[in-house]
Computed example of a mutant assay.
Amino acid sequence: MRHGFIPGARGRVRPLTLLGSPVLHTPCAEVTDFGPELAALVEDLFATMYAAEGVGLAANQVGEALRVFVYDCPDDEDVRHLGHVVNPRLVALDGVEIRGPEGCLSLPGLEAGTVRHDHAVVEGSTMTGEPITIHGTGWFARCLQHECDHLDGTVYADRVSGRRHRRLMRQVARASWSGGS
């Protein structure tokens, strides 16, 4: 991050895109312009994530179909990881696969047991175009996989199957934000 950059300090809180919106199931476009509009989007993502009390947020969750996400997420040792990634690529998944509770700001108030790898490596760049590599373990690895999924047009509910999926979809149908009863 650039010197003096305080995530969310100047950003504006944007409305969250909720499950049912087509932008959540559409792969996002690569970022090609690393100018002030991208910096403003990153600041808005941080402001929105903090306002919603999340640990990660992808650009399509605020209606922008671009490959960008932000995070402020601890790992299993309670080490804080804070940053953003532009044009991320999930380049490695290893370690054990663990089913753990997973939620999403686009499915507010809901969660389901979702299988994720315990270690993930993401490559991409900063908002100024500098290459970065991020290694995550535990909860932070789950966050990296979750946000990369968003940019590929996948929400965690798509990874849940069987009884868990049916239960989650019933909860979605009943949720006030989905237009359910």
Rank of each mutant, 00 (worst) to 15 (best):
E30T: 15
R164P: 00
V86M: 05
H84R: 03
F46W: 04
I132P: 01
R142Q: 14
G136S: 11
G54M: 07
P36W: 05
R2H: 10
A29S: 11
L16V: 12
F140S: 06
L144C: 08
I98Y: 06
C73R: 01
N87Y: 04
Y50Q: 11
R99C: 07
V13G: 03
D78Q: 14
V68Y: 00
R170N: 12
H165Y: 13
A39F: 07
C104L: 11
R10W: 02
A112W: 04
R116N: 06
L144I: 12
V86S: 00
G103H: 11
G129E: 06
G129A: 09
P15S: 06
D76A: 09
E64Q: 14
E77T: 10
E77R: 14
E77A: 15
T133P: 02
E43C: 00
V155C: 12
R14V: 02
C104W: 10
V160T: 03
S181P: 15
G95L: 06
P108Y: 13
T133K: 14
V42P: 01
S181T: 15
L151C: 06
T48P: 00
R164Q: 07
L57H: 05
R14Q: 13
A173C: 04
L144T: 07
I98E: 14
D152R: 13
E77I: 00
V68C: 00
R116T: 05
P108N: 12
G4S: 07
E130T: 14
G136P: 09
G109P: 07
C143R: 05
G138Y: 10
T17R: 04
H150P: 03
L151A: 09
E111W: 13
R10E: 10
V13Y: 04
P27K: 07
P101S: 14
P101Q: 13
G136M: 10
P131W: 11
D33T: 13
L19R: 12
F69M: 10
P88R: 07
E102C: 11
V85L: 08
H3D: 15
